[in-house]
Design a protein around this nucleic acid. Sequence first.
DNA 1: CAGAATTTGTGTTGCGTACCTCAAAAAATG
DNA 2: CATTTTTTGAGGTACGCAACACAAATTCTG
Lengths: 349, 349
Amino acid sequence: MSMGTIQPVARATLEDVARAAGVSLATVDRVVNRREGVRAKTVARVEAAVAKLGYRADVAAARLARGQSFRFAFVLPTGSNSFMTNLTEQVARTADWLAGQRGFIDILHVDVFDPDVLAGALENLSPAYQGVAVIALDHPRVRAAIDELAARGVAVVTLVSDAPSSRRLHYVGIDNPAAGRTAATLMGRFLSGREGRVAVIAGSLSLRDHTERQFGFHQILTSEYPDLTALPAIEGRDDSERTRKLTAALLERHADLRGIYCCGAGNRGIAEALEASGRARDVVWITHELTQHTRRFLVRGTLDAIINQDPGHEARSAARVLLAHCMEEPISSDQERIRIDIFLRDNLP
Amino acid sequence: MSMGTIQPVARATLEDVARAAGVSLATVDRVVNRREGVRAKTVARVEAAVAKLGYRADVAAARLARGQSFRFAFVLPTGSNSFMTNLTEQVARTADWLAGQRGFIDILHVDVFDPDVLAGALENLSPAYQGVAVIALDHPRVRAAIDELAARGVAVVTLVSDAPSSRRLHYVGIDNPAAGRTAATLMGRFLSGREGRVAVIAGSLSLRDHTERQFGFHQILTSEYPDLTALPAIEGRDDSERTRKLTAALLERHADLRGIYCCGAGNRGIAEALEASGRARDVVWITHELTQHTRRFLVRGTLDAIINQDPGHEARSAARVLLAHCMEEPISSDQERIRIDIFLRDNLP
DNA sequence: CAGAATTTGTGTTGCGTACCTCAAAAAATG
DNA sequence: CATTTTTTGAGGTACGCAACACAAATTCTG
């Protein structure tokens, strides 16, 4: 048995460092907090002692002494679908966790899909917030509102839906073109050897994430699976009833419809239409977001795969990124990268 | 980007609660820390004040005042494959994070695959540890060693590989039968419409996680994909060269070999054999664990899918579970559930 | 109603750090 | 060498809570 590095039982304190370096507490404090007025030679001595003792500031004590606290706003859509409901709940949980860390999250519900309303909400945000997480829209007014917040020194992260050319600090969400490509590869492989058409249903073609997914999907489908032809995307507006009708019409019109890729919401409508048509087992259906509904459809076999982004991870990541920025700490980028999950019936969490 | 003035946010302290409840600080302390000697009526009054003010203990201050610190041992395998190397690095990072929280992690390297050596290591563990995370073996001696630690009051979590009937506190890892089922579904669907044989390569059939994966794989393949026949599992002993030879022999013997499921390590050998045979594009190969090697094979198209468990998540989860147990805090079970990731070329992180 | 038992209040200390002031020492300058 | 400037030291306070000792008030008991 080989042992790893054995660390000291009790951690070194600032006083230990001061004693080891032969300087006073005040000087050590000046060095570790990067204040002015210390000779380079002394800095080096202190830093050597820090390294030798493996000193690390006790975050609990530091936080207590600083007494800082933070207030963040999470701007989320009103009402809306299962995914957004999940996300809201996860943000609430994150808020609960943050409350123990002197961080406060206010959830503001806004009609996120209207650029003017969203931009207005951002512009009128109380100056009490040090950070904002927002489900963004890629629209000039929204971009301008984000840039203005950034200019005021407010940290802005975009959540789930990005505003790429804005001055947001960070985007917390998945790579949507890659998600579309993933869906296409699954579709292509699940349908290997068969010819026919594949339908693409989006919520709205003016939502950046939906068009990006669609783009990725088409890209792979046309280049890798020439036997499959993608139909022009149709807009279900994330509405179940409208989506049901559209899907039913598609099934009726195209006897050679082999697959459906839904890159938005409205999944209940698709399930109804598919099951009513009797072709549920035959048509490969791939959609986004694990919700109570999509889970049921997947277990039942109507749905074949779910491309998912974990709202819990996204909520926590947004909070961590904002917190880290306010405390001028680095973030570990691979922990904050939101993965594109694939769920089949067998690996549902 | 400079921050504006940091505005302190009012946060209820113990004193506020005492004032609101009309009692002294000591009484509030007795109530919130569940000490004896307070009348039910007073308890109720204090709790009402806590609820009304939304009081939450400042975790930083509490931790500082308590001054407790924790020491955990992570028992990991010596040398070993890419996955274990990754895991070790992630544990080291977690240790770094925990060091700021008064937690210390020692990494002990042991030959985990020998039950006697592993059990011996656990038995001889320094009593300084309040918690242990171990890549377990499902073996009587190991179980006994875990139970003895548990009896001594040491929190034990099993990591990656479980010892189900032991008194371990928690298992941090994936559901291996489900992982096998997931692999089978992918295999079956990727090969839809084709007939033939599928090879199963395990590291060792005496490793519980490998046999469990195999079990799940066979279960789904035989019940759902009758056109595919699984060959008896062979043991590659996680050794690339041995695995290469075995794979080459399989390819030679079975002209109708359509797929390979590898539920252990030794992937470099499989890749070599597949590429040498010229059937790399034709045979569907699915394996476990995202490493630098498997990533390369996936991008190149030799490998078709990776079933993965995130070692970073596992390391952090183990630490969180141990820490929560030591501080008698609850754990949020869905954050600690390790997911079965599926990676295709398109959704690689 | 005295005495005992229980409940509550007062007060103190310490955790490790941040941040501040003021004085003392050392170094740099003319 | 005297003076200015820079660097360092000493010491204090505050953060919010835990933990404890001991006194005071209240309730219960016979």
